[in-house]
Amino acid sequence: MIGYLIRRVFQAIIVIIGVCAITFILYHLFPGGATSEARIILGPRATPPQIALFLSQNGLNKPIWTQFFILVGHVFTFNLGYSYKLNEPVATIVLQKLPKTVLLLGLSTLLTVIIAIPLGIFQVLRRNRPSDYALTTLSFIFYATPTFFLGIVLIQVFAIHWHLFPPEAPQSASVGQILGDWRALVLPVFTLAAVYIAGFSRYMRSSMMEALTEDYVRTARAKGLSTRRVNYVHALRNALIPIITLLGLTLPAIVSGALITESVFNYPGMGLAFFNAAINNDFPLLIGTVVVAAMATVVGSLLADILYAVLDPRIRYV
């Protein structure tokens, strides 16, 4: 296990360097190079001396390899620098936005799990019957509806027409206050969850179906255990294992997974920070958010693997 972990950490480091390299290369492929980048930041009235100052202040006039090694060094020392546009250290911005997005995604994932697991089981037990068709169709419709459309429809119906919920997410910066304003969380959390539910329930359905065909389930049935007991105890327990690991794999979504929900519900989190950085060519912030996304991906899949090993005794990592 220790050897395995060491290997995984090593792999993670390689992946993060790779991510830096991709981001760096793409950024430098930009037509017009660093001068164009400077102009996007400084505005069209930027004159050559202003551009020269910007390039030297940000080390963009150094040789390309030097720039890359400086970047990798900064990333691994968590020195993410200052945003070109937002007048703040990248680390501060990430620390401000990350909890907001984690909260939104956490709540919607929770809602997803609460709805999707029973739904998935139901879909197996009532496979190809009208009630399965109806529920599956509903979950697919939510899945198929573009997020921006769903969000806007929900706002029109529940906020503008019926005045049941506010049209925007809580506007506070602190997690405690955001949670306190629970009514404002309802629509964004549901919008985000609606998309996940179909995915999770489909997964649950498939994994439950598989579990029901396993030998031990058939054995349990043969031993005369009630169908209900077999379904809910033996098969369910095993079917849940992959679901738990799936949760680990939703981690990368903290960067851009909630982008559209954030923008529709006026909730500036990681997604919008990332999007604006990309649109505005704010390289330090961009690399900061991309690295956070990469770390989340790496940590998420590591967690998924470990959980899998812990929960399923048949798996051994060597």
Partner: peptide
Amino acid sequence: MRIVDTVLSVPTLFLLIVIAAI
């Protein structure tokens, strides 16, 4: 597989915006 992991770790949207600019 590290290539896959790496590409998986770069947000698609970023790839899109930058490639669309280039």
